[in-house]
Structures are given as structure tokens and as C-alpha cells.
Amino acid sequence: MKTVCFISLFIMSKFCLGQSTLPTDLVLNDLNGAVKTVVEIVSVPNTPDVKKVYHFDRNGLLTTIDEYSEFLNEQDSLINNSIHHFENKHGERTFTVRDTKNRAITSTGTFKVLQPNVYSLDVNISKDIRSYSVFKFEANVLVDRINTIMKENGEEWVNMQLSYNYTDGLLDWIDVLDLTTKTKDTTHIENLGIDSYGNFQSQRYFDQSHTLVYEIKREINYYD
């Protein structure tokens, strides 16, 4: 269950990483071509779907992400809407997530270059939870990530290393190592509906018993 949760958090934080500087936001979003918008539905079994709409400018930088999700609270149905705003400045990339109803800021994050092809992502997920990741790239492709998610009292909730493996340029499987318990797991990925730019329209994640644990469906629109 912790592995599934971690993968979910990873997918939800797909924004911008690259070489010795922070390049376009197309790199970590598995996107090629002059992408304008991506409408993405994220599904986890027995959990309400999350819908996200990514907006890119002509330089391939994210301007906003609109996120819609439904949470069930006893007999009530609560719709959660938020918007992510992005900003580039002096070798950093920052983002702010704001609730569209009450305008409150729910999380913030900063990308930084640590060294060529190595980057950090520091996210305040909430007032009680903080996530810190270090990413390693080779040839502009993500190959390794170490992530620690901590509670306010300093207790580690997640401490994992993920190694990414590709076939024909598409993510094929992820090796997951829990750095606390030293247990290992592997997640296999199925890419479906590859378009003329090499972008998948559907991506499905399976655990070692071939049980579906995560699915992404995308509708991609391009600039003329």
C-alpha cells in the first residue's frame, strides 16, 4: 500500500526537470511535440478519479494545472478543486497550489539544480507533511529518484528509491526499494495508444502479481 501511495504522489508531482538548468516542463511529463494542453484522468482502484488539465505555453513551460477530485466523507460528497501556478526565476522553478473555493494555499514547492543532471524537489504538501526528492537524469531521461516524506514531528512516512527502466523510449518498469525496511518491489507499466509524436494516451501500472494499481488516461492537444 505504501508503494502505491508513493507512486501516486510521484505522478501528482510531475512538473519540470532536465539537464544543468531547468528546461521545459515536457521532460518529466513524458511529452513530445508542441503540446498545448493535456487532460489527464488518474485512477486508483476503489478511489475516486482525479482529473487534471495541464496548460503549456509555446515554450513548453507549464503555466497552470487545474485539478478536480471528489472525496467521500461519510454520507457527503465533497468536490475539491485546486489550481497550480508556476514561476521561473534565477535557476529555480516554484509552484503554488491554491484551493479555488476559499483561495487558500494548500501546498508549495521548489525545484533546484544540485549539479548537472541532478535536481531536487522540495514540497510542503500540507502544514503537516513535507516531501523532499533528489532526481538523477541521463541523456535527458529520468533514471533514479530518492524520496523522503516526513511528518511535522520529523517521523519518516516514506523513504524510497526508485529506478526507472525504458524500452523503445517508453517507461517499462520501476524498481522500488524501501530504504527503511530494505524491501524491494517492481512496478510494470503498460503504454497504450501511442500517437504520432510518441506520446502515450493510456498508461497502466501493475504490481508484481500483475494487479492493476494505477492508471493514467490522457487527451493531448497541440499548438498548430
Rank of each mutant, 00 (worst) to 15 (best):
L170Q: 13
L171Y: 04
T148Y: 08
T21G: 02
I146L: 07
N117F: 00
D122S: 11
E70I: 10
D122L: 11
I125P: 01
D144R: 06
S69I: 11
M1G: 15
I220V: 11
Q161I: 09
S209K: 06
I11T: 08
L72M: 13
Y223V: 03
F10R: 03
L114A: 09
V141I: 15
K36P: 05
Y119W: 12
E87D: 05
Q201P: 02
F10V: 13
L114K: 11
D25N: 15
D168Y: 00
L212N: 08
Y164L: 14
F135R: 01
I65D: 01
G60P: 06
F6Q: 12
T63R: 10
I79V: 14
L22M: 07
R58M: 05
G193Y: 00
V42C: 08
S13W: 01
E219K: 14
C16F: 05
Y223K: 12
R58C: 00
T96D: 06
R93P: 01
T3V: 12
H55S: 07
I174F: 01
N199M: 06
D168K: 13
F10I: 06
C5T: 15
T37F: 01
K101P: 00
Q75D: 15
K127P: 07
Y54A: 03
L170V: 02
G60K: 02
V118S: 08
I41P: 00
Q208S: 09
T108L: 09
V97K: 03
I79F: 12
I7A: 02
